[in-house]
Simulated scan of single mutants.
Amino acid sequence: MSASSPRDKFLALFPKLSQELLAYLRAESMPAEAISWFERNLQHNTPGGKLNRGLSVVDTVDILLCTDEQGNKVKQLTEQQWEDAAILGWCIELLQAYFLVADDMMDASLTRRGQPCWYRVPGVGNIAINDAFMLEAAIYHLLKLHFRDRPYYGHLLELFHEVTFQTELGQLVDLITAPEDDVDLNRFSLKKHHLIVVYKTAFYSFYLPVALAMRMVGINDESLYKRALDILLPLGEYFQVQDDYLDCYGAPEVIGKVGTDIQDNKCSWNINIALENASPEQRAELDKHYGQRNSDSEAKVKAVFSAKNIDVEGRFKKYEKESHERLTELIKELPQNVGAGEKGIGLKREVFTSFLEKVYKRTK
């Protein structure tokens, strides 16, 4: 298969998987309008994002199977190995689509990836609830179709079920901590923020791609999954703190959106840093203006963020430096190719350094 980039090659597989899913509906004698609707659901919600999570499965399998002890590329994935990894990657993208369709309804969001949120497409409305369920169910149909005869099939099912539950727990804590129509900064804390971002983001965005790749290549030592988790969860937390920071301080033309966390009453890292360091007067200002849907209140919150005693920007730079140092040390502590069995396939440091390099000091 020739394509101009790894992303293009990955994208080129999606029509085949879509047709497999639609073939199931046809085999069940679903009416033409239902088949057409599901196809629109798949196309609108699945392939339009950055695809980082899905591509990370392919990248991780490539590192585990095709690099030597020094991290040098020594061979290429076979087409079957690449396709297996890419299918698992698309299953994560379907999981992401399921979360986003539901999340947009819960948050009453207007746009997603530069187009109307699915529930806001004319004629969709609350049918989007069922459409979200169908995106999730599609994962398990594809897993059954492609991996049922593999020895690690049960582990794949377990990973998707467990990580889905963990992500939904994170969403629950987020929703009850920071409802948009009930601003109460007493609910916020850095501890609560940590819980939300680890469960809502880190498990499915960082741990799941690596764990799926490890299962696919035959790494069975359970202690290695714990070691991977110990690196990937703090890495995912660092990524989300970056996201929170960029929402407030990133250039809209670079990050591709205008930040709305302040007006949306988000339990972000920025507000929690401000709450920890605010004077009584500054706290009163935050209580009055945070979560208010107007630009004047947003400007007043940002002014508090910039105060000398709070200095969200300066504290983020310090946090970023310390996070990079801590993550680098955690990766160094991992022996190279640890757990390699008779086939010589173990867990390699490059899996984690490649993740860290992608996110360190990112601007979007």
Rank of each mutant, 00 (worst) to 15 (best):
V101S: 04
R283F: 06
V121K: 00
L42Y: 06
P31F: 12
R293F: 08
F352A: 01
I219F: 01
A137D: 02
L190Y: 07
G256P: 08
D181S: 13
F206H: 03
G71A: 07
E333P: 07
T164N: 15
G291R: 05
T353Y: 11
Y152G: 05
H194E: 09
A128Y: 01
A307Q: 10
I35P: 09
A274T: 08
L135D: 03
G49D: 03
N309S: 08
D103H: 05
H193Q: 12
H141Q: 14
T363G: 11
F38E: 03
I92M: 06
A128V: 01
K266I: 06
Y204W: 15
L11S: 11
F133G: 04
P151Y: 11
R326Y: 14
K361W: 12
D243M: 02
V57C: 03
I310D: 05
F99C: 05
H155A: 09
K200C: 00
I231Q: 00
P122V: 07
T201L: 06
C66R: 05
K192V: 15
L233R: 07
A178R: 10
D247T: 08
E313K: 15
N186M: 15
D296N: 03
R26W: 12
L88F: 02
R7F: 06
G48H: 14
A274I: 01
F160K: 14
L145I: 12
